[in-house]
Every structure is written in C-alpha cells, then in structure tokens.
Nucleic acid binder design. Structure first.
Lengths: 206, 206
DNA sequence: TAGATTGTTAATCGATTAACAATC
DNA sequence: TAGATTGTTAATCGATTAACAATC
C-alpha cells in the first residue's frame, strides 16, 4: 500500500473484518454498503469510501461478495500470515493475555513469556513457557518474533522497549502507563486502560 | 458542562492529567502551553484550545499554574469523587483488572467481582470477594455502584449488560468482543484488544 | 513599561457525507 | 433493458493550526 491511508480508516477495518466473518459463518455471500451500514453503524457512503481507498472490491448493481471482501480486508490488515509474539511481564495482565484464545484465531501466536521473577521462570501459562528475561535476545532471533506485548511495571517499560528495539522488534503493544520512546520505524500501540475509565467518568457527569 | 465537547478533546484530557500529576510531583508549579507541547506532543495551539473549551485556566504572560490546572482537569473528568465499581467475570482478565492498583489511585474502587462458576464464588482477589451473579441486583443497589466492567465471554456479555442496565448502571466498560445494545443514556466504552493487534499488523506491513 | 503568553478569531486541513454518473 | 448499487467527485462539516489582539 503506497497511499497514505488515514488512521481513522485503519481503525475501522477490524470491525468490518469481524462482521464479515460473522456473515460468512452464517453462509451469507453478498452484502451491500447500505445493509452493512445498518448493522455496523457507519454510513454507507463512508463504507464505500473506506473500501475504495484500497481499490474497488464491489460490483455495481450487486454489492460486495462477503468472502472476497473479507479476504481483501484480511490482506490489508496482514492477517493472511501469522505473527509470532511474546509477552514481557508474566504478572496478572501477562497471564490474562496469554490465556486469551481470540488472538490465536487471528494468527497472533504466543511463543513465550518473559519475566525476571525467579518463581515464575520455568512455569507454563496456557502451555507457553515463562523464560528468563536474560534469554530474550537469543529467543527473538531464533523464533522470528514480530510483536512484543509489554506488561511490565511503568518503571521498567522503557528499558524493556530498548531491549526489544535492539533486537529488531518492530511492533510493540504497550500496556504500561508511559509514552515509550522508540525509533520511528517501530510501531507502538498503547493501551492505557485508565484513560478509558476517565472517559466513562467524564460522560457519567454529563 | 453544557457545551458539547468533542470526543477527541475528552480523550486528550487523561494525558494532560497524567503529565500534570508528574509535574506536581516534581514540585513544578508553572507551565506554558509551549512547554507542555514539547513534552506531551500536542501543539501549543491545540492545548490552549482544549483548555478554553472549559474556560480559561491560564494567565496571560505567565502560563498555567500546574496545581490549579490539574485540579480543573480532575473536576472536568469527574475524578474529584470516587466511583464504586464491580467486575463481572472473574476469569483471567477479571483477575488482572482486580489486581490493577492504578485504578484505585484515580478513585475507581472495586467493590466486588461476580461470576457463575461455583468454584470461584467465595474466593477473594486482591482482597475483594467473588460473589454469585445471582446477588448482583441487591449488591448494586446497596453499594451505589457506578461502573461495571464486563469481562465475560462474548456469549453472555449482552445478557449481563441487560441485567446491569435494569439495575441502573450507567457506565459499562466492555472487554467482550461484541457491540452491546444499551439505552443511550448508558455509557459504554469498548476495549476490543484484538483491534489493536490488527492495527499493529497493518503498520508492520507498510 | 516591555516581554511573555494566554484567549480567541480566522484560516487551513482533513475526514465525513451527499450526490450522481458509471456500470453490472 | 431496467433496477440496483458501486466508485468517485463535490459539498459539507468538524477539528487542528496559525495568527494576533488582549492582558497579566
């Protein structure tokens, strides 16, 4: 994809993906932008614009073929191939993420967890081993890891990120409440959960 | 607040809050929009616009007083008073959220977890009891619960939401991968974690 | 008073929506 | 061919940025 697609568009793609998967499961093979609009909540116009950023996937007078549209969106999102992932920090959150089955369905395959706590090292979570953080460099290289989830305390998140970057990790999913500094070719997605609660709190008042 | 403030503005407030708290901890009592801009990454112009949606908190020629600005933002977000919360679903994710200490710091106080699994009922997580889902109506009324976190499977999320709504809950933090249908006076914030991974996957390709 | 920085208006930019010609 | 619905251009809307007068 050479064109610069806005982040807003990209953020809508997973929702399309999810709903189209559901349609496919229900053996529905055709959908129009207006039908999609009713179910998904975006306007039909926006839906057509979104798809046309990547080329026309539909057919005039007919609509979109569910299977091929889903396939195109999977390709755009890079979900056609699987990703090897690791978790750094095997605390409660690391545990929860390691146990999440839905990531596997999308091809995000957890290869290891890492921690510095001796008591955790060597244990298994959902069949995946917790390794010593000291081994992370070798592990990343040997296992072609694409994406790392940072589930550590705030105090160690940046130094963990540095190690990840040094070892060539290009995708970081950061759960620590800190803005990581990384080279700009490294993708960081932050999940600052407390921000969500603040939003709820704001709207409860209003 | 009568004016309709855009969601984009609200979503930036927690970041201001976080950075101002840090400044306060470092005993810095004054900051200008341009200094704030350097640290936080938004433009100085946007920062001033953001604050002026709620009234002028600064002083010309001086800047903003950290303490009073932080106080104003706390008030806007409704963080001056605490919120009673509950978690529905005491699985891995429920566990992780129950153990998160940062929510307490912002005044979100967990009062109970609920589950239907007999083995979990009666146990404690981080000192908070897991109760039977059957008791939820009484509990919500007796404990003035404001916000509920849905950490159940997709299949039960909507029915859980229905029960919450019936019992007057106005704020729902939904971790299940489903779009809940609720009356429009109920605030729902979704955390669809897989969407984040899809975004990372997209940008890794590009 | 002079310098600094806000508050606020105007200009720009980008995203969404509307409209309709193209075409299946 | 007639009807339906896309692809695409144009219009609108909203959010961000720039500029500067107000004022501490």
């Amino acid at each position: 994809m050479i064109k610069n697609i806005s982040r807003a568009v990209i953020k809508r793609l997973p929702k399309y993906h999810r709903y189209l998967t559901e349609l496919l499961d229900r053996d529905i093979d055709k959908i129009s932008s207006s039908e999609l609009s009713q179910h998904i909540g975006f306007t039909a116009s926006q839906i057509r614009q979104d798809f046309n950023h990547f080329g026309g996937f539909g057919q005039q007078g007919y609509g979109y073929n569910v299977k091929s549209l889903l396939n195109e969106i999977s390709l755009i999102l890079g979900l056609n191939k699987s990703h090897n992932t690791i978790i750094i920090g095997a605390g409660n959150l690391g545990h929860a993420l390691a146990n999440s089955s839905s990531f596997n369905k999308y091809g995000f395959e957890l290869r290891a967890l890492f921690d510095i706590n001796e008591k955790l090292i060597g244990t298994h979570i959902n069949g995946i081993e917790v390794l010593s953080f000291d081994e992370i460099s070798d592990f990343i290289k040997e296992n072609q890891i694409d994406i790392a989830y940072i589930c550590t305390a705030v105090s160690s998140a940046q130094s963990v990120a540095n190690v990840l970057v040094e070892n060539g990790i290009k995708g970081i999913w950061n759960f620590a409440l800190v803005d990581l500094e990384v080279p700009k070719d490294v993708i960081v997605e932050d999940v600052h959960l407390i921000d969500n609660l603040c939003t709820i709190s704001y709207f409860l008042k209003n």
